[in-house]
Design a protein around this nucleic acid. Structure first.
Length: 1078
RNA sequence: GCCAAAGUGGCGGAACUGGUAGACGCGCACGACUCAAAAUCGUGUAUCCUCGGAUGUGCGGGUUCGAUUCCCGCCUUUGGUACCA
């Protein structure tokens, strides 16, 4: 037996891989007698390229933690699996005709083989693959739980839809408004009563419930990528092009599944305070959620002079005479409550636009109340009961007034309604059909404001209300057409066309371009009644806030530039803080020109203004989030099918016993190009019965990844996604290691799913990951050769200035550091077989650069090659030795020899020069014990702090110290082997066995650290004079400070510097330093 | 632009709550072994210098007996984000 040689390493590693598997040493089960520890890696997407040296970095770190915790007596769950659905396999299928299921399985096999060689302690019996029907059965199940729940804002948690239907049946939706504030019922209302609810038909109810479901269908603006034939999530679009492939992306309206993650915005934000993520990771998530606190403020619009064909008192819904409104409101409400029988009958037929027109009842017009009115057609319908009969005069007067207001009045008797409802309805219908619609006749209005005569803005700076110089509305805002005056009509239309013509990419490319158009309308500042212009501009986004802003040029940069560009005068409310040259967004300035806010500091004025707004009922406090709901449909084949069927265009969940809804087999993965997913090609599958259809889309890869860490706890359960006992035992992931590229999507969706499952009572915890560590990215070190243009001659790097050359990536595996193996180069590609070289000093030196590791850059280093040469233990320790885990760093092979030498030196401690086993039973010395306990302490500290590189240093120091004293004592080497076991499992397991142990070192106990061995009696103090070290002196640690001072001051070396003078001050820190101040 | 993190020898990096800056490793130089090379082992290695010392942790200031560490201002790099009101 021998040396720690290449052959011996290979023998050891292969032996133990077989042995570990045979003995099932990594299998874990729930064991309530032991504390648990859950160490999780972000599971990989098994790509065809296999693992490169960058991948194992995080896995090695987590493996060390898992092994360490096990040695410390924890029951450790350390599983691995594969995120196996996804686009690359599908694209590969389209290009090469290999079914994704096949290529994915091949890749997984390769990954497992590669991972196996590194010696990870995964319990493979718990492996999950997201594309496995027995796994995605539960992904679909959870999706259905989410579909079947809504977010109750009152108690801030998800509840079953059944609790919502109960509420609707008993009280309507007044207490639980639609989450989407823009949503309106068919009749234009946003609330409905319990009676309304009872009157709705099945489809209407489903549509309303859809507005509340946490997984819902809606027509949404999606990022449509024509080239990929699919919809992309916001985080898959970078600068207007697709994350993969870089293809252009445009906005398109499609009926899509979404998750209502916005309801959880606040809890996702709050949860960040409870978890241990890095600051930057938390910050990225906070920015993504994008909470801002401010106010909604209503700005009334001025009544523009109308062309005069109608009276000014009557506009839009507010048709009542203001003088009488107070009383009319009461009447109208009473009347609604105490409807006559006939009115009820008629109302049932008119409501909800049943005749195709929106009808209101008991609506105040001028000083009267009409029974029914269609405002759009200006038709009033009156039903004369006893009450009216007695008041003929009154009714006549009313008709006169209404006619004057341009309303047509049609009357029916109670008798007619009761006995001949059909004829009544048809008369009404005819009257309505004949009358001109206000909307139709004025596609771009005459400037007269109909609908709500106000614009609501969202602002985070209500304190700047007196600095508002104009308003800007998003071009897509629905109010634009209604407010544009005749003389501006053309200009506005032109601008809208321009905006429409601009793609996302154009907009992003020219962010700083200032464009806009005045609508001709004016708004009134509710605080000082100032009349201000209303503009439209693309810098205001329809999708954020209310799609309208109040512009304060002295405080907002964009508003300032806009005002300058269009010559709008600027009001200064912050005095000297505003220089007229650029906006100042400060919150610290003292307000001026601001009426009751004068003299107040801006940030204090915010609340004052909001209180005033609420008091005057023209605004309120408002929180806004940037985050949008998560699009959950993908027009792809290789994903989870949605477990629903559509009947009458509404989705219904399939039964539990029909799960999993298996992905049907096909060889056609191309999108049909209709916006539907590839599954639409499978007609029999899609139209599975006469009036029932399936969804042609599949879920995004995020779905499978949003809960895989839960499945590991109970991976073979066929009854539940995981057993509650196992979920409670393993609980939260104690430490989660992975790349920071998943900061937004994966982590947010996982956190969301866990919160929903928690709310629904399936989980006891509501944050999945207690601690998150992001390993840095290992960048590749690329090598270049320089070909002289139009020749096959290559010139060495030092000489390229003399030639006209092109640089080409060269395979790093045929370059030794920087020197090219020219023979290997000639064999590398046929093109280079006849290559000639211009050398320097007889060598061909390559150029180099650090880049992302990628196949196309030929800088991929396969861990298998390193293991072949040095063994897995060296690879593991070297990757840790590269630097701090969280820092990204370039890959370089220089330095790996140092780690390899360490392991050999460690091996040699147990063997003599001839490679024979040579361990003594002698008592260790104080020095040897000290060396051992230093490393026991250090490794414990470092694993806790994820500082693995410094542990490797400490191992080296320890081995150096022990070698120099030729220590081969069991009392030192045995515990040291355990300490090293987490880092280098193979060599330690072998030595452990040679030390005479039959059980695996995995089941050993981490040696206990004893402070006494590190205790020193004395310390060599650095003696510094004015902060500079001038001498060193040895003192006992327990020597009194006063004695030390005397000796130091009397010493020759100090005398030389003090020249006999008394020092100003002498500072002595025991065990640290002596500093003399002259 | 905004937000976050980070800047230390030729290189990767170390330094606990302010206490000897450069641990450990690579590289390099010299030496041992060898006919020689490789491998291995040993010694040295921040910079400048008149060999006493001076300078030195991105730059400029500050607090302190003492600052890589704390504070202020700036520069650079990396990551995130972007007309978010």
């Amino acid at each position: 037996m021998g040396d720690y040689s290449k052959d011996e390493i290979k023998r050891i590693e292969e032996k133990w891989h077989t042995e570990w598997q045979k003995r099932n040493v990594y299998r874990v089960t729930e064991d309530p007698s032991k504390p648990k520890y859950y160490v999780l890696d972000m599971f990989p997407y098994p790509s065809g390229a296999g693992l490169h040296v960058g991948h194992p970095l995080g896995y090695i770190a987590s493996d060390i933690v898992a092994r360490f915790k096990r040695l410390k007596g924890f029951n450790v769950l350390h599983p691995m699996g594969f995120d196996a659905f996804g686009l690359p396999a599908e694209q590969y299928a389209i290009e090469h005709g290999v079914h994704p299921a096949k290529s994915t399985q091949d890749n997984i096999k390769n990954y497992k083989n590669q991972l196996g060689k590194i010696g990870f302690c995964y319990d493979w019996s718990r492996e999950v693959q997201t594309c496995d029907p027995s796994y995605y059965r539960w992904t679909q199940w959870i999706f259905l739980q989410i579909f079947d729940s809504w977010y109750n804002r009152k108690n801030k948690k998800a509840e079953k839809i059944s609790s919502l239907t109960w509420i609707f049946e008993n009280e309507g939706n007044a207490e639980h408004p639609f989450p989407n504030t823009k949503y309106k019922l068919n009749n234009g209302e946003v609330t409905f009563t319990l009676h309304d609810w009872k009157a709705f038909n099945q489809k209407q109810r489903q549509e309303i419930l859809m507005q509340y479901r946490l997984a819902y269908l809606a027509n949404t603006d999606v990022n449509w990528c024509e080239a990929l034939g699919t919809v992309l999530a916001n985080d898959e679009v970078i600068n207007g092009v697709s994350y993969r492939g870089g293809f252009p992306v445009v906005k398109k309206q499609m009926r899509q599944w979404s998750l209502r993650i916005t309801e959880y915005a606040e809890r996702l934000l709050d949860g960040l305070d409870k978890v241990d993520f890095s600051d930057s990771m938390k910050e990225i998530q906070r920015n993504w959620i994008g909470k801002s606190v401010g106010a909604l403020i209503d700005f009334r619009l001025t009544p523009n002079p109308s062309p005069g064909e109608r009276g000014t008192a009557v506009r839009g819904r507010e048709t009542a005479d203001k003088k009488y409104w107070k009383y009319l409101k009461e009447f109208s409400r009473d009347n609604r409550k105490n409807q006559t029988e006939e009115e009820c009958i008629l109302w049932e037929e008119l409501r909800n636009s049943k005749l195709g027109y929106k009808i209101r009842r008991q609506h105040a017009i001028d000083a009267y109340i009409a029974d029914f009115v269609c405002l759009d057609k200006r038709v009033v319908i009156e039903v004369d009961g006893e009450y009216h009969k007695d008041n003929k005069e009154f009714d006549d007067a009313r008709t006169v007034v209404l006619n004057a207001e341009d309303f047509q009045v049609i009357r029916f008797t109670n008798e007619e309604v009761k006995s001949n409802l059909k004829s009544v309805l048809s008369q009404i219908k005819i009257a309505l059909d004949k009358s001109p619609s206000i909307k139709e006749s004025n596609p771009l209005s005459t400037g007269e404001v109909r609908g709500e005569a106000k614009i609501t803005v969202f602002t985070t700076r209500p304190d700047t209300i007196f600095g508002v110089d104009f308003m800007v509305v998003a071009p897509e805002h629905e109010i634009v057409k209604a407010i544009t005056t005749n003389d501006k009509k053309e200009e506005v239309e032109q601008y809208l066309k321009y905006v429409e013509s601009r793609s996302e990419i154009d907009r992003m490319a020219e962010v700083k371009k200032i464009t806009g158009c005045f609508t001709g309308a004016y708004a009134i500042n509710p605080f000082n009644n100032r009349k201000i212009e209303v503009w439209i501009s693309e810098y205001v986004l329809a999708g954020y806030g209310t799609g309208a802003i109040m512009a304060v040029p002295c405080g907002d940069e964009r508003d300032f530039k806009f005002a300058k560009h269009f010559n709008i005068p600027i009001t200064n409310i912050i005095g000297k803080y505003f220089d007229g040259k650029e906006a100042n967004p400060t919150k610290e300035a003292i307000l001026e020109n601001s009426d009751f806010l004068n003299g107040m500091v801006m940030h204090k004025a915010i609340d004052v203004v909001i209180s005033k707004l609420e008091e005057k009922e023209i605004g309120k406090r408002q929180v806004n989030y940037k985050m949008r709901d998560a699009g959950w449909s993908r027009q792809r084949y290789w994903g989870e099918p949605f477990p629903v069927v559509y009947r009458d265009d509404m989705p219904y969940p399939i039964n539990d016993n029909e799960l999993p809804l298996k992905l049907p087999d096909t060889d056609n993965f191309k999108s049909p190009g209709t916006g539907e997913g590839p599954l639409a090609n499978l007609k029999d599958w899609i139209n599975f019965s006469e009036n029932a259809k399936r969804d042609s889309n599949t879920m995004p890869t995020h779905a499978g990844a949003a809960w895989y860490f839960l499945r590991y706890m109970d991976p073979h359960n066929t009854k539940e996604f995981a057993n509650r006992k196992a979920l409670d035992y393993w609980n939260q992931v104690d430490v989660y290691i992975g790349g920071s590229e998943h900061a937004v999507a994966h982590l947010l969706y996982s956190r969301l799913w866990v919160k929903i499952l928690h709310d629904l009572g399936y989980l006891s915890f509501d944050e999945p990951f207690k601690k998150l560590i992001n390993q840095g990215m290992i960048t590749g070190s690329s090598r270049f050769v320089y070909r002289i243009r139009e020749t096959n001659k290559f010139v060495s790097f030092g000489l390229i200035d003399n030639y006209d050359t092109d640089s080409l990536h060269v395979n790093v595996n045929i370059v030794n550091d920087l020197e090219l193996d020219t023979e290997a180069f000639k064999k590398w590609k046929p093109d280079f077989a006849n290559a000639e070289f211009i050398l320097e000093d007889g060598k061909y030196i390559c150029g180099s650069a650090n880049e992302k590791i990628s196949k196309s850059k030929y800088n991929v280093v396969n861990p298998d090659d390193i293991i072949d040469k040095y063994g897995a233990d060296t690879l593991r320790m070297y990757e840790m030795f590269l630097g701090p885990l969280e820092q990204s760093k370039p890959w370089s092979m220089s330095g790996i020899d140092g780690v390899y030498k360490f392991l050999r030196r460690f091996w040699n401690l147990f063997h003599d020069n001839l490679g024979n086993w040579n361990v003594s039973e002698a008592e260790p010395t104080k020095e040897e014990l000290k060396a051992l306990h230093k490393v026991i302490k250090k490794v414990e500290y470092d694993v806790d702090h994820y500082s693995f590189n410094t542990s490797v240093s400490e191992f080296m120091i320890c081995a150096n110290e022990l070698s120099s004293v030729k220590c081969n004592k069991r009392a030192i080497l045995e515990p040291l082997t355990i300490v090293l076991a987490s880092y280098a499992p193979h060599i330690t397991e072998e030595l452990w066995e040679k030390l005479g142990h039959r059980d695996s070192i995995l089941n050993a106990r981490y040696p206990e650290f004893k402070e006494e061995y590190l205790k020193e009696n004395d310390f060599e103090y650095p003696i510094s004079i004015n902060g500079k070290v001038r001498a060193k002196m040895n003192f006992a640690l327990d020597m009194p400070v006063s004695d030390m001072e005397k000796i130091v001051m009397a010493s020759e070396s100090v005398q030389k510097w003090t020249e006999g003078k008394a020092p100003k001050k002498v500072i002595i820190v025991p065990g640290r330093i002596v500093n003399i101040v002259l």
